[in-house]
Amino acid sequence: MLVHPWDAPREDAEWQHWLAGHDFGQLAVNGPSGEPPLVQPLHFAYDSARGEAVTHLARPNPLWPALEAAPQVLLSVVDDYVYVPGPWQAEPAVPSEHGVPTSFYATVQLRCTAHVVDDPQEKADLLNRQVGHFQPEGGSARAAAGEAPYGRLLSGIRGLRLEVTGVRAKFKYAGKRSGDVRDRIADRLAERAGPRDAAAREQLLRRSGTDAVTP
Rank of each mutant, 00 (worst) to 15 (best):
W88A: 01
I185A: 04
A199T: 09
H115R: 15
K170Y: 01
R177N: 15
R188C: 11
Q26T: 15
D80F: 01
H17R: 15
A45C: 04
P95Q: 05
R142K: 12
H98P: 00
D187P: 00
R182N: 08
E91T: 09
R158G: 03
R161G: 02
Q203L: 07
S140M: 13
E137D: 14
E97I: 08
A148V: 07
T113E: 15
A200R: 02
L154P: 02
G31S: 13
N30M: 09
A69R: 14
P195I: 03
S178N: 11
K172P: 03
L42Y: 04
S96G: 00
R188Y: 10
A199C: 00
Q121T: 06
T113H: 08
E14A: 08
E202T: 13
V167E: 05
A66E: 04
F171V: 04
P149T: 13
V164H: 03
Q203M: 15
L126N: 03
P101C: 12
Q109E: 11
P71R: 08
H98Q: 15
A28F: 12
L162V: 04
H22C: 04
H17M: 06
D80G: 03
E35D: 13
G86P: 03
I185Q: 04
W15F: 09
P36Q: 07
A169V: 07
D211F: 05
A193Y: 06
V116E: 08
T210P: 00
S140Q: 13
P37S: 11
C112E: 02
